[in-house]
Design a protein around this nucleic acid. Structure first.
Lengths: 216, 216
DNA sequence: TGTACATCAGTGAACGCGCGTTCACTGATGTAC
DNA sequence: TGTACATCAGTGAACGCGCGTTCACTGATGTAC
């Protein structure tokens, strides 16, 4: 979960390598941990970590806000790739819930800095910031929704409001994941158990509601 | 939602009134809004708002962290009182979901500073901070759980894992509420609709799971 | 009632610090001819 | 190949600012006698 998109810094031809946007993003990630959020990073701190003068920062980003948004894009893409892969591994519906939740918690525990960014910054920071996080959550919801529709289409009625099912699951998982970061790893098992049950409740409820709707 | 606990500042007998803890809490609340979180307040800022010298702050709180925790306690107590009242007004189960959710959203819209505190600070701030928020959520879950148990005990099987039902609902409502703060009020109706459906899904799922459990 | 004293909430000035941002600069690199 | 020039990523120094925290203080209030 640490690969970076190819640099797009070259304009005309090529100049010397120097510091890149990715170097700064990497530096910021190094400073972030379970107990440190992006919005508490200072421009000077990131520059220091990247080994450049504070003012050189401006060659790459307008300000810390712009860096933070870039970081969130990165984090979102990465997480969707990981969970998407987990989903395709388990193609039955029950398996999907379980393995997606497990993969998610594994990532939280793997000290995945990118994931920490997504989980921590939901409510803090600037507007641009919050919008970026929200956009990533929406992508996530869309993929989950289409998976859910695909997997339940065989069962006759399918699910009631699959969009809301996906939204509820996404928001719940992220909220639980955020608190999980502060818990000792011993409680992971319990958390996975809880989350899986919660998700199962939502899906089961949506299925019931779809059936009732069909019947009348 | 702005009443304050009686001051407990008097030690021996009584001295002059002066500034109280509550005055500082009130000043902090005045500075907080939908787009301003407690963790971005500075000690000097609060002191300024309260009309005292910066160093006078220390007579009441060790630091801003201590003030923030006090603020969260206040917010939690207030919210529980409000939603609790809404619950007792509607004693049927379907009505409870609806009216609790509606009351909650009304409070979000009422620019309730105390509620903003609870919604915003879930992931930001110090450890003491996050623990305080988590504690308030737990209280909330407990009350919700006992209400759910009471109201569904008549239906034979009741609910599967009412503790998880309460937890899922609480986390979901708070997560949705936090994003609601940034949305225009025109979308309140839609949000209430969504939230109510989500909560209904969880409860319906838990009921189905309880029935299956009983039957085997 | 009057007086001397203790208490302590609130003060004003000062500190050192890290911050974001600016400025004019330098010097390596690529380009034109 | 050689030379003059343009570009521009990165620099070092400096700025003013708001911050948290400290210090010795003051003066109103309550208490003891």
């Amino acid at each position: 979960m640490t690969d970076a998109p190819p640099p797009d810094t070259e304009v005309g031809h090529a100049r010397k390598a120097g510091i890149s946007r990715d170097d700064l993003l990497a530096a910021a990630l190094r400073l972030i941990g379970p107990h440190r959020s992006v919005s508490t990073l200072s421009l000077r701190e990131v520059a220091r970590e990247a080994g450049i003068a504070p003012n050189s920062f401006y060659r790459q980003f307008r300000d810390m806000d712009e860096l933070a948004v870039a970081l969130i894009d990165l984090a979102g893409r990465s997480l969707r790739r990981i969970v998407g892969a987990a989903r395709h591994r388990a193609e039955t519906q029950r398996g999907i819930v379980r393995s997606s939740v497990e993969t998610f918690m594994e990532q939280v525990r793997a000290d995945d800095k990118l994931l920490h960014v997504l989980l921590r910054e939901g409510t803090a920071g600037s507007d641009a910031f919050k919008q970026a996080v929200d956009r990533e959550l929406s992508f996530f919801e869309d993929e989950l929704r289409s998976d859910l529709v695909r997997l339940t289409s065989a069962e006759g009625a399918g699910l009631h409001r699959p969009d809301l099912v996906a939204k509820a699951i996404t928001r719940l998982v992220f909220a639980m994941g955020a608190t999980a970061m502060d818990l000792p790893p011993e409680r992971d098992r319990e958390l996975i158990e809880q989350l899986s049950t919660m998700v199962a409740m939502i899906i089961s409820g949506a299925r019931t509601m779809a059936q009732k709707r069909t019947r009348r």
